[in-house]
Amino acid sequence: MSEVRAEPPQAQWPLYEVFVRGKRGLNHVHVGSLHAADDQMALRHARDVYTRRNEGVSIWVVRSADITASSPDEKDPLFAPSGDKVYRHPTFYDIPADVPHM
């Protein structure tokens, strides 16, 4: 409805990933996935499936196919180098007592 994509008919609706922001949350959190025929239906399905216990105040949906993910094969080159660099944590400073919200 919102966007027509030129694709051949499929036996199953495409997969969407759902992100919900809770009442007290500052960010949207990935809660799961679902099938829907289009973006608007995905939003409504997400409302029905993932916010029925009063969890959310805002929903994002995105087609799973539109997410670019890192590959498990790249795990070491991507993440291993940061494993031994503890000095990148800002824990080597003394915080003055009068600095709030730290």
């Binding site: 809770g22 009442k23 007290r24 949350g25 216990r53 959310g56 709030p100």
Partner: peptide, 21 residues
């Protein structure tokens, strides 16, 4: 702190995002 509200207080801590129906 401004982040205190993130912690689900009261009786709804076992829900993912809190409830308060």
């Amino acid at each position: 702190s401004v982040y205190d509200g993130l912690l689900a207080g009261e009786a709804d801590g076992h829900w993912a995002f809190g409830t308060s129906f």
